[in-house]
């Protein structure tokens, strides 16, 4: 069994994963309510909260799973907020020392990359390796507040980055759009909720696609165009058309993501067998539906991460410590260091 810790940003999380059975338990403390009051994650508060909550969460885990079965401790060592990562790595090393088991550093982004496969594993743990082979090569899209990445997980289980964002991440575009619209934090879910009552074609925002034949994303032009539009609209009009603004803005983000993912699938010339969606923004229903449709059109399996594995969570850390055990850049041992700027591959 692998025991995993995650503390890269504002969730303190612990999980246990047994390759023979699946995720054995997940314990999480979200600081969302705390940071909501501040309009975003406050790094020093987040650090103190991790320090406060890891102990009690690990104690709870100990009452629910047999720590004697733990063969490895996995901990997120990047990317993320430096001091938050440091608390997790220190806690992970302590656990490793106490349980006399090795400690492995997990790349948070690679854990997102692997997270759509947690559900595949859960369906039939004993047949996972064979089923995984039928789903590779895999095109993955990670969409979160800090990242927008298209990557390939090839038949040899190697991860290669295909494209990223040139400026803002998709989640960031939603958060900053929400800020311009005078909404609160977290902006993405608020926009999604308001968009339910709006028309997605009411306003024509740029799709941030840059050159048609390029895979990289760009969202800063979208943010700027919303800013220009709002400057020209009287306050009453903005209020009256808030739902339409949210729906149209969200659609522009979703379209940009779906178009680039579609382009990558087409370039794969039928080579891809599955399309994954993960990261915090993967919970957005319009995005899920859009990619589901795309996958069907292209004849590939659609693998969205389960909602509880989209945001920051330790389940995906534990799972990827196992599934991604051949990561060539893997770091292990008591010398494990934090790396706030770690990249996918």
């Amino acid at each position: 069994m692998i025991l995993a810790l995650e503390s890269s940003c504002d969730e303190t999380a612990v999980a246990a994963f047994d390759p023979r059975h699946g995720v054995a338990g997940e314990w999480i403390h979200s600081q969302m309510a705390l940071h909501e009051r501040h309009g975003g994650v406050v790094p020093d508060l987040a650090t103190r909260e991790h320090l406060r909550h890891f102990g009690p969460l690990i104690e709870r885990a100990r009452t629910e799973v047999e720590f004697g079965l733990v063969a490895e401790v996995a901990v997120t060592h990047g990317p993320g907020l430096a001091a938050c990562l440091a608390i997790g790595v220190a806690a992970g090393k302590s656990l490793g020392l106490a349980l006399h088991v090795p400690v492995t550093g997990v790349n948070h982004l690679r854990a997102h990359a692997w997270s759509p496969f947690i559900g595949v594993h859960a369906e039939a743990p004993g047949q996972f390796e064979g089923r995984l082979d039928t789903l590779l090569p895999h095109l993955g899209l990670i969409v979160s507040g800090g990242n927008t990445l298209l990557f390939i997980l090839d038949a040899g289980r190697r991860i290669t980055t295909l494209a990223g964002t040139r400026d803002d991440a998709a989640g960031e575009a939603l958060d900053k759009g929400a800020k311009l619209l005078g909404l609160g934090y977290p902006g993405g879910p608020l926009i999604e909720q308001l968009a339910l009552n709006g028309r997605a074609d009411a306003f024509d925002f740029p799709r941030g696609i840059g050159r048609r034949d390029e895979l990289d994303f760009s969202f800063s032009g979208l943010k700027t165009s919303l800013r220009y539009l709002l400057e020209k609209m009287p306050m009453e009009q903005i209020q009256a058309r808030l739902a339409d603004l949210c729906a149209s803005y969200q659609q522009a983000v979703v379209d940009a993501l779906a178009r680039k993912a579609g382009l990558a699938l087409e370039r794969g010339e039928g080579g891809f067998r599955s399309l994954g969606l993960s990261g915090g923004v993967a919970n957005n229903r319009v995005l899920r539906m859009s990619l589901d449709r795309l996958a069907r059109e292209q004849g590939v399996a659609f693998l969205p991460a389960a909602p509880r594995h989209t945001g920051d969570n330790a389940g995906m850390i534990a799972f990827s410590a196992w599934a991604d055990r051949d990561n060539p850049a893997k770091e292990q041992g008591m010398g494990l260091r934090i790396n706030p700027g770690l990249t996918l591959a």
């Binding site: 790094p43 979160s144 507040g145 800090g146 964002t165 400026d167 803002d168 900053k176 800063s220």
Partner: peptide, 10 residues
Amino acid sequence: PVTSPTFTLY
């Protein structure tokens, strides 16, 4: 590539 560091702050 240099992108916005808003999420991890730097």
